[in-house]
């Protein structure tokens, strides 16, 4: 095999070094590149959620005070069925006017609570406070609480849940 390298400019040793570098790079590439794909692939395949979730009868919610509604969704993550829980505050401003807010703090995703005395949603992590319609009153959150699109069908509230 090494006889091919009989040309005066290329010694047998140099030839074998070139072959080795070449074969080595091929092996490195054929294992290395797939491994990169292997590592990042779960990040590229996330399941989308696009659903209308029922929050029950509109009449079940009091006017003027936010009420928490919790529900879960299950997704497939790898070999597991991951159940995520969601919480929304439903504020009925009048008989038909609603605000539906996610209970996830816009700062670092802690779950906020409605504190009646303060008339505010309070985040337990960094003491942030949000007003009854989600405006930031105090603390580090960068934006108001996230609002859900909603519709009312047959007296039931449905919210539009999207993810991914």
């Amino acid at each position: 095999m090494a006889k091919k390298a009989s040309s005066p400019n290329l010694s047998r040793r140099d030839f074998s070094k070139i072959v080795m570098a070449f074969l080595g790079s091929i092996m490195g590439a054929f294992v290395g590149l797939p491994i990169i794909g292997y590592i990042i692939s779960p990040a590229l395949k996330t399941q989308k959620i696009d659903d209308w979730v029922s929050l029950g009868a509109l009449d079940g919610y009091p006017i003027g005070t936010p009420k928490l509604f919790s529900f879960t969704r299950t997704k497939v993550n790898g070999w597991e069925r991951t159940t995520n829980s969601f919480g929304v505050f439903v504020l009925r401003k009048s008989a038909s006017d609603l605000v539906v807010l996610s209970n996830v703090c816009t700062h670092l995703s802690c779950r906020v609570k409605w504190i009646e005395e303060n008339q505010a949603y309070v985040c337990p992590c960094h003491d942030a406070e949000f007003g009854i319609e989600g405006k930031v009153l105090y603390g580090p959150p960068p934006r108001p609480m996230d609002e859900y699109e909603f519709k009312i069908e047959d007296g039931n509230i449905l919210i539009h849940l999207t993810e991914g």
Partner: peptide, 17 residues
Amino acid sequence: YDSIQYIMNDVAFGWLI
């Protein structure tokens, strides 16, 4: 078993590794 199915079917190049 499920995690290996995941490697084989869903992870990029899992079948190769």
